[in-house]
Design a protein around this nucleic acid. Structure first.
Length: 590
RNA sequence: CGGGGCGUAGCUCAGCUUGGUAGAGCGCUCGCUUUGGGAGCGAGAAGUCGCAGGUUCGAAUCCUGUCGCCCCGACCA
């Protein structure tokens, strides 16, 4: 039986909802697929349910083809497993926590590594049981600081999360490849553009990690790529390290007065005027070493000041620094921080001074000092001299100072060279639609998942985790497949195969439509039938456009003469057909 | 958490500056007409004006507080 529009639980809206910003959000609400229930929370209406089910179906088929088995865990879980791995604390405000009547702590799971690991531990104890990959399609909960863009970042969302368990590293590599391949097939079938980027393993721990990003201006992730095929999340981009320079013949460091030069620009202008270079070139901001004091907040709540040094023509990128110090949080140092550290002369901080080092674990400030990878031995810098209104020239890395470490602390810019030598990078935005991780043994270790190997020895299992945002993908497909009239679904996920519009004052159109629908359904197609009487053609056409079923069959003014029209929603093209040929023409579309 | 904006009918909004007891369009109900691009005419139903205090004879409107939401940033397997 067709789904009749006269009875479908649906109301299309003429206006964009006031709270929607991105196209997918506006259209999914206007076309009656979803409705907002609260910040980052959405109800799914019949049309939306169908599309979501189609996406899930593609995922299930490819998971099965990759040898993964479906299970289902509760979204509501006790805190203990998450305490064992430290994530109960690490997640901070990011998860929904609640208590039962006995005052025991629970959480709405943001992801399920712990309980999957424990389940495998419960059931398996031999290497012969491995490898195994299990997955679920399930709702996840995160108390996002700022839900946004409708389905793209919600507080409840559906995710396919798979977990692989192997006895060996080689096994993990294979399990990882199997999921990665499955993801490529899934996104291809869904007709989604994607870029696989190197990702930061971050708080999840582990080693290899890649994200599947759908390039889109509304994406929240920045990534870099080159024409030569390199791609990385901007947080995982690694700077090309220059060769160290010889220290021979480098002038000795020299302090100079630099009144009223607290900023890089003012400093560069000052040295060009008063300490011009001997060669033809002028000093520029890249000759200066910018030293920025930051505050780390460690998991235990303790606060530590650090300093980072980077070329003065670069901005500090806090997100990249957080990667280096995860799971600590990073923020700019406050006035209070400076007040507490008298050794710091704001605006004139540097790694070297005539009276000895200020920065660094061994310096008078005891503040750990990290430098950008470009600050290699032998590079000379104009930088602060740790005295008010004084800077120093020719402060040379490896001679005048040695940092406590090297971290990626600078912004990535378009044109920077890729680490694999494939050329200059461009920066683009993308939406994360999938993420594959080699977790390694972190969770198995923490939760005691071990199996006996062929020698009878206990070995810790190594794991991978693999996520796909199902509801986010619905939004991404909508984002990538719409025009100014409404949605245009790819056939693979369209809520229906054919949308039959019967329109005309003669009731015979409904009889003719009934006959065509019977023929279409006999071939296995799902039909949405606009059988509404007393609704004008304009309304029906408008609804067909916003709902976005790609194939529309109009039974209207030509029907009495044996003609119907096939309307391609995507191209807008309408083709007149003989009624007798209509079913065959539609099934021939594939 | 910082910055900005907004809360009035199911939806999108006007009214607020200059207080006088609430409106439009869309949607919904009924009747007649209409039927290839969101129809016409007529008659209706529908709102604690986010909430709480205050000022005032009188508050959607002015004042204070509070809650909520949206956007930017920070944050985000």
């Amino acid at each position: 039986m067709p789904t009749r529009l006269s009875h479908l639980f649906l109301r299309t809206l003429r206006d964009d909802p006031a709270d929607a910003e991105v196209a997918s959000h506006k259209l999914l609400v206007r076309a009656g697929y979803i409705r907002r229930q609260g910040p980052g929370l959405f109800a799914w209406l019949p049309l939306g349910m169908r599309v979501k089910a189609k996406v899930e179906q593609v995922v299930r088929e490819e998971m099965a083809a990759a040898g993964a088995q479906e299970v289902h865990f509760p979204a509501l879980l006790p805190k203990e497993p998450y305490e064992a791995t430290g994530r109960w604390e690490e997640y901070g405000d990011g998860i929904f926590r609640l208590k039962d009547r006995k005052d025991a702590d629970y959480l709405l799971a943001p992801t399920h590594e712990e309980v999957f690991t424990l389940m495998v531990k419960d059931l398996y104890s031999s290497y012969k049981d491995l490898p195994v990959t299990i997955y679920q399609i399930q709702d996840k909960y995160r108390d996002e600081a700022r839900p946004r863009a409708g389905l793209l970042r919600g507080r409840e969302f559906t995710m396919k999360d798979a977990y692989s368990f192997d006895a060996t590293d080689e096994g993990l590599a294979q399990s990882y490849e199997a999921q990665r391949d499955a993801y490529e097939r899934i996104f291809s079938r869904l007709g989604l553009d994607y870029v696989i980027v190197k990702a930061d393993a971050g708080a999840m721990g582990g080693s290899r990690s890649e994200e599947f990003l759908h390039p889109s201006p509304v994406g929240e992730d920045s990534f870099v790529r080159t024409a030569g095929g390199y791609a990385a999340n901007i947080e995982a981009f690694t700077t090309v390290v220059p060769d160290a320079l010889s220290l021979d013949g480098v002038p000795v460091a020299q302090v100079f007065d630099s009144p009223d030069t607290p900023t890089i620009d003012s400093l560069v202008a000052f040295v060009n005027k008063n300490h011009a270079r001997e060669d033809a070139r002028a000093w520029d901001s890249g000759d200066t070493l910018k030293n920025v004091v930051l505050a780390l907040t460690h998991l235990d709540g303790s606060r530590e000041l650090i300093a980072v040094g980077l070329p003065g023509d670069r901005e500090v990128d806090l997100a990249r620094i957080e990667v280096a110090f995860a799971p600590a949080e990073v923020e700019a140092a406050t006035e209070a921080d400076f007040a507490k550290n008298k050794a710091l002369v704001k605006g004139y901080i540097g790694p070297w001074s005539e009276s000895g080092a200020v920065l660094g674990e061994k310096g008078t400030s005891k503040i750990r000092y990290f430098v950008d990878p470009r600050v290699v031995d032998g590079t000379q810098w104009i930088t602060g001299a740790n005295l008010n209104e004084k800077h120093a020239l020719f402060v040379t890395a490896g001679r005048d100072f040695v940092a406590d470490g090297v971290i990626e602390c600078a912004e990535v810019r378009a044109g920077d060279p890729a680490p694999d030598g494939s050329g200059p990078v461009e920066i683009a935005r993308g939406i994360e639609i999938g993420h594959v991780f080699q977790l390694g043994r972190k969770y198995a270790e923490a939760l005691g998942l071990k199996v006996l190997d062929e020698n009878g020895k206990l070995v810790t299992v190594t794991m991978g985790s693999y996520g796909i945002g199902v509801t986010r993908i619905v939004a991404v497909i909508a984002e990538a497949n719409h025009d100014d009239k409404g949605l245009v679904w790819p056939r693979e996920v369209a809520p229906f195969d054919v949308h039959v519009v019967a329109t005309g004052k003669d009731d015979s159109v409904f009889d003719i439509a009934d006959g065509l629908i019977a023929g279409l359904e006999a071939t296995g197609l799902d039909v949405l039938y606009d059988d509404r009487a007393k609704v004008s053609p304009g309304v029906k056409f408008g609804d067909a456009e916003i709902i976005g079923v790609p194939v529309i069959l109009i039974v209207g003014k030509g029907a009495a003469d044996g003609k119907v029209e096939l309307w391609d929603r995507r191209s807008g093209e309408r083709t007149e057909l003989a009624i007798a040929d209509a079913v065959a023409s539609i099934t021939a579309l594939g």
